[in-house]
Computed example of a mutant assay.
Amino acid sequence: MKEKITLDKVMSSAPDLILYAAPVLIALALLEFYFSWKQKKELYEKKDFFASLSIGLVSVIQNLFIKTLLFGSVIWVYNIVPWSIPVNWATSILCFIVLDFFRYWAHRFGHETSIFWATHVTHHNSEKYNLSTSFRLSWTQQIKVVFFLPISFLGFHPVIFFICHQIAVLYQFWIHTEYIRTLPKWISYIFVTPSHHRVHHGKNEHYLDKNYGSTFIFWDRIFGTFQPEDEQAVYGILEQPKHYNPVKLVFHVWVDIFKNMKRAGSIKKATLILFQSPSSLKKYE
C-alpha cells in the first residue's frame, strides 16, 4: 500500500525554482533591454516593459499565497488512487514528457475557449516580443490546474510533478527573444525554439493558433498545429488594447465574458459563452 503524501511534506521537498530564478530572469531581461536600446532595435517599449514586469511580479507574489491550494488539489488526487509510479530518473523524464503533453492541450484550450483565453490573453497582448514577455502571466491562470490533475491520477509523485512543472515554466523564458534566430535542425525538430514561439505570438493570418508546444514541438507536428517561421511576426492580439494598465491587461477578456453572460438571457446560454471560441465574444469598450 502506497504512502499517503501530506501537503507539508511536498512543500518542504519541492524547491521553489521560479522564486529563486526570478532575480536572474529579471536581470537578463534588463540586459536585453539595454542591448536593444544600444543597438536601436526597438524590441522594447518602456511602458510595455514595466507593464510586463508588474504583471510578472504580482504573479510571483500571488503564487506564494495560493500554491497551498494548487499543491493540495494535486496531492488529493494522488492520494485517492491506489497506484503510484516509482520515483527514479526514467520515470521523472517520463513525467516531464507526459506533463508537456497536457501543457500542449492546456495551451491549445487557452486559445480555443473563452474561459481559458481569459486566463491566457495577458501573455499575448503585447505588441513587443522580448524576454520580459515571458513575465506576462495572468493572475487567473491557476484554474488551468484542471488540465494537470490527470498526471497525479496516473500516479506520478507530486514532488516530481511540481519540479517538472517549474522546469517547464522556466524553459519558456529563453524562447521569448528576437536575438536567437535559428538553431540546428535536430533541435528545432524536437524542442520549441524562439523561432517556433515567435510564430505562436504572431497575429499574421497563417500564424494564428499555431505552435502550442511548451517544451516539445513534436506535439504540434502530431496534432496538425505546426507552422514554421516564414515571415516576420506581427505581435499582439486582434483586439489589441491601447493602454499599458496591468490590471486591464489581465482582466479585459474577463470583462467581455461577464458582459456577454449578463446579456445572454438564460443560465444555459451564459454558461455556453464560457466554452465558445473567443472570436464569438462581443467586445465592450
Rank of each mutant, 00 (worst) to 15 (best):
K2C: 08
K2N: 09
L7E: 08
L7N: 02
S12P: 12
A22H: 14
P23D: 11
V24D: 09
L28C: 03
F33P: 05
S36R: 11
S36K: 14
K40N: 11
K40F: 04
K41I: 14
S52T: 08
I55L: 00
I55R: 00
G56H: 06
V60L: 04
V60T: 05
V60K: 02
Q62A: 11
N63E: 06
F65K: 08
F71N: 00
F71H: 04
F71D: 04
G72Y: 04
V74E: 10
I75P: 06
V77M: 03
Y78V: 05
Y78M: 08
V81G: 10
W83I: 14
A90V: 10
T91C: 04
I93L: 15
I93N: 06
F101L: 08
R103S: 14
A106Q: 07
H111F: 08
E112D: 04
T113K: 00
A118G: 05
H120F: 02
V121P: 02
T122L: 01
K128S: 15
N130F: 15
R136S: 08
R136D: 01
R136C: 09
Q142A: 14
V145F: 02
F147Y: 05
F147H: 14
P150T: 05
H157E: 09
V159A: 08
I160S: 01
F161I: 14
F161P: 01
F162A: 06
I163Y: 05
C164Q: 01
Q166A: 03
I167E: 07
Y171K: 05
W174A: 10
I175E: 13
E178I: 00
I180P: 02
K185A: 07
W186P: 00
S188P: 05
S188D: 12
I190T: 06
T193F: 07
P194S: 12
H197V: 02
E205Q: 15
E205S: 08
H206N: 11
L208R: 03
K210V: 00
F216L: 12
R221T: 01
I222M: 04
F223E: 12
G224V: 00
T225R: 15
Q227H: 15
P228S: 07
Q232F: 11
Y235E: 02
L238D: 11
E239N: 09
K242N: 13
H243T: 10
F251W: 10
V253R: 13
V255D: 00
N260D: 12
N260V: 07
N260E: 12
A264S: 02
S277Y: 05
P278N: 00
S279Y: 08
L281F: 05
